[in-house]
Design a protein around this nucleic acid. Structure first.
Lengths: 153, 153
DNA sequence: CTTTAATAATTAAACTGTTTAACTATTTGA
DNA sequence: TCAAATAGTTAAACAGTTTAATTATTAAAG
């Protein structure tokens, strides 16, 4: 059982580590991406690349932001010529988003560099350690989700 | 040894979990904070509360942003009456930042609620699991730091 | 000493990402 | 057929960020 003091220490330790890891990972990824894209824009390309085709509503659900925030990001990517918008002929309210040839190439090129980076980092950990870490991390994710539902009651 | 495919899967898994955990933690913390502060503002109060007194330059170093970004945040907190600015009498370039009575009370009140939240969450994990997780997390932090230095060469 | 450097902080302009609220266009369904 | 729902956009406003210029002050070199 953790004491009051231990809990406070743990909170501080978790906050400072998660802040630091997020910041450093962000900076390293930013170095691979270059100046053409922000990290958020790159994550957006990543999702669309993997989905091949998706809608603003889907992106808003996935990234947990309002649709108008998606419109803003997609507009910026569209202005850079990385994204295509195609109206659904059957339901003309719907706009499908996909990467242009340029967009897909840029993403693939960047992803290759990120892959190499991760490959070099991952060597420092053994597989069991990684597995254990990810399991706890995913458990934390589930616990936070439950807590959210409990709080909404 | 991890295969190409395993590395790609791990990257996806890590990205989606860290995104989700960060988002959910942020939302839960936001619920405890209320509408008076943003999460970033709360983190700023936290640091100043613990430091008791600090400068803009110190905050810029800690949070890894430019000093002008700190000025902007501090101005907003100052307008809310949560922060005090005191000029150093010996070196009149320096401005010391500290919490006002109101600021310290607001922080303490909020922190109490966050503490209770964490206490309830932490029960789901045993101490050994937490310790193992934090050790790997901190190791990741160190590995990212080394990688940054290596890249700068 | 005095002039030049450096330092601490701020300001202004510009940008990204975000929300809320209003609006357009289209489809659903009572 | 017409009111309600849905998909998406637009506009205004705000937080947080950077870069570049500015002010005030101190340190240091000659």
């Amino acid at each position: 059982m953790l004491s009051h003091r231990n809990i406070n220490e743990l909170v501080d330790r978790y906050i400072s580590t998660s802040f630091s890891v997020a910041k450093r990972a962000e900076n390293l990824v930013k170095c691979q991406i270059g100046d053409d894209l922000t990290n958020d824009q790159h994550y957006m390309l990543r999702y669309i690349y993997k989905a091949q085709e998706c809608t603003s509503t889907e992106l808003a659900d996935v990234f947990e932001v309002k649709r108008s925030a998606i419109t803003a990001i997609i507009n910026r990517l569209w202005e850079k010529g990385l994204i295509e918008r195609t109206r659904d002929e059957k339901d003309r309210r719907v706009v499908y988003l996909s990467l242009t040839k340029n967009g897909a190439e840029l993403f693939a090129r960047t992803e290759e560099r990120i892959y190499k980076l991760v490959e070099s980092l991952i060597k420092k950990f053994d597989q069991k350690e990684i597995e254990q870490f990810m399991e706890t991390y995913e458990k934390l994710d589930r616990v936070l989700l439950e807590s959210k539902y409990k709080q909404e009651e």
